[in-house]
């Protein structure tokens, strides 16, 4: 069935691009296995000790990600504390993802991409007008996904902070130049996050359609939680 709509075109998944649904990065009993459609949001609580594997099914598809302590969401992911504590701006295996109080929320237990991003932030309808122009004002964005998904947990605009971008590549060059460049991921590549306490994970499957980093093909994500 084909719907006729006057809504301007949405970013699409190129029908012939390869997908690799892969599987959990760490062994264990699967307690959750869900697919996130292109452009969509996802959230779930990962219990202490469980591991969330995020699969980049189509390759270089940014999974914008925020974390909250499930029992007190005022304590939430802090890119700044994560960076300050490890003395490095890139997220790699072993990086402890810390809260605004400096405490561990999750640890990167496995990672199949050289480095992951936490300085690039999320796209937004509003910031898109700065980055690309006001003609993008009606395009969907990660900030929309975050707000919609956060609202399901009683969270709102006050709870959005600088996030993680799994499978996105944002280098800082010697003169301070910073920007989103070609990704280092590929279909089926994964990152695995071990929960150090019960953590609410909110993900936006990035719907950005102005950046060639995913070849303009928005692809699905797979979220797998395993219990050791």
């Amino acid at each position: 069935m084909s719907l006729t709509t006057t809504v301007p075109p949405r970013p699409v998944h190129a029908p012939d691009s390869p997908l690799d649904w892969s599987g959990p990065l760490v062994p264990g009993r699967v307690v959750l296995d869900e697919r996130v459609a292109p452009r969509a949001a996802w959230s779930g609580v990962v219990a202490t000790g469980d591991v969330l594997t995020i699969v980049d099914v189509g390759g270089n598809q940014s999974a914008d990600c925020l974390l909250y302590a499930a029992d007190d969401t005022a304590e939430r992911y802090s890119a700044a504390d994560t960076i300050a504590w490890q003395g490095n701006v890139y997220v790699r295996t072993g990086t402890v993802l810390r809260s605004n109080l400096g405490r561990p929320l999750m640890t990167v237990a496995g990672n199949e991409v050289d480095r992951q991003d936490t300085i690039g932030g999320a796209c937004g309808k509003e910031s898109n007008t700065l980055r690309y122009g006001h003609h993008t004002a009606y395009q969907h964005a990660c900030r929309e996904n975050f707000l919609a998904e956060a609202a399901r947990h009683g969270l709102g605009v006050r709870d959005l902070v600088s996030n993680l971008n799994w499978f996105m590549n944002v280098p800082v060059e010697a003169d301070g130049s910073l920007g989103i460049v070609d990704g280092m991921s590929a279909p089926g590549k994964r990152v695995a996050l071990r929960a150090e306490r019960d953590v609410l994970v909110v993900v936006s499957n990035c719907p950005q359609m102005n950046n060639p980093c995913n070849d303009f093909s928005c692809t699905p994500l797979r979220m797998i939680v395993t219990s050791p």
Partner: peptide, 13 residues
């Protein structure tokens, strides 16, 4: 928003 403060001017410093 420090991410937008760095990303949108294409400059971290």
């Amino acid at each position: 928003n420090v991410a937008d403060t760095q990303k949108i001017p294409w400059q971290a410093y």
